[in-house]
Design a protein around this nucleic acid. Structure first.
Lengths: 120, 120
DNA sequence: TCCATATTTCCATGATCGTTGAAATGTCGA
DNA sequence: TCGACATTTCAACGATCATGGAAATATGGA
């Protein structure tokens, strides 16, 4: 992951409203949520939310598809992986203690997950 | 890691100058760098840099100690680990594919690291 | 084609952020 | 205690950002 890309991602996640929206989409999973539903759940005006979604999308953290009259947003998990790896490889260059605790967390996450979906 | 803490960290890393300073300190390792040296390497005025260091420190990403007339800054690797885990657990709640690729990266980092320092 | 719905774009306003000069603080050596 | 050095704090300016009202765009149904 390039430096600039990571910067965009950090920037997008650096505001309370956007972080909340992003976490909402992460929880929603690959099916995603319609823009209107997000606005409702986040309690913000539709146009305010539109701007936030736009920034998250520019950063590559979410993507959108149209379904009928609605536009469905969903999290780009690949890009989140990239961001984590960027953070780790930039830091573990000198210090493997980061990699150790991250590895433990990854194993925790994987052992609780359905085995069928562990394939990438 | 609390939501607010992560937000602070993302916010601190969301600006080019601060991200550059942070990476500089990560590369420098636990020994750290004097504020003046950082300013020199980053090519910024000392007071500008002071503000940036302050923000990174408030976010818990770096720490400082005085050594003679200099103040030495160094990266807080523990906090970086926390941030990565936060990112992963918030995301892997639904999707283990993130955990999988992160685990792979952690293993890559660890196998190249000196075994003696893998103890936390 | 006309209307209702879903969302975005445009625009203006207030708030926050980044930078820098100048002054202040803290440390060391003489 | 004085002067030189390293860094921070203060104050102020310009730039960027977040928000929301109003208008515009796109879709689906009658």
């Amino acid at each position: 992951m390039e430096n600039k890309t990571a910067l965009l991602a950090f920037s997008a996640l650096s505001q309370e409203g956007r972080l909340e929206v992003f976490r909402l989409l992460v929880k929603a999973g690959p099916d995603g949520l319609a823009a209107g539903l997000i606005a409702e759940q986040a309690g913000r005006a539709p146009n305010t939310l539109s701007a936030q979604l736009n920034l998250l999308q520019q950063a590559g953290l979410i993507e959108s598809r149209r379904e009928g009259r609605s536009i469905i947003y969903s999290a780009c998990f690949d890009r989140v992986s990239d961001l984590i790896v960027y953070l780790m490889e930039d830091c573990c260059a000198g210090e493997p203690c980061v990699a150790t605790s991250v590895q433990a967390a990854a194993e925790r996450a994987l052992c609780c997950a359905p085995a069928s979906s562990v394939n990438s």
